[in-house]
Design a protein around this nucleic acid. Sequence first.
DNA 1: TCGAATGACAGCG
DNA 2: CGCTGTCATTCGA
Length: 104
Amino acid sequence: MKNKDLSFNQQCWQLLKKIPKGKVTTYKALANALNTKAYQAVGSAMAANPDLISVPCHRVINSDGRIGKFALGEAKKIELLRSEGIEIKDNKVVDLEHCFFDFS
DNA sequence: TCGAATGACAGCG
DNA sequence: CGCTGTCATTCGA
């Protein structure tokens, strides 16, 4: 986390902001939307987000529906998602396809 | 289950 | 001037 992406991160955040409330996406989807395969770089961009409000990185999860990680902690992430109406079970999203947001 | 790959940037030789 | 390491992941054998 020594790198300070800028343009690349901005792209990730822009997509994040596009996600409507009550929906979630995956790092893979973000990377795919950015036309890149550096899934890690996408997640890394979330860590570099300036504000958790402007960049709801809590709406981003693993492709398996797992929570993965969050700046405030996985538990906090789950709480936030639950607050939006998304159900979480065992650190996993319930009905991922149901609340999954596609960037098409 | 484990390792390799991917994109971008800072630091160092 | 050029290479390496790191990152909240992902996929394949």
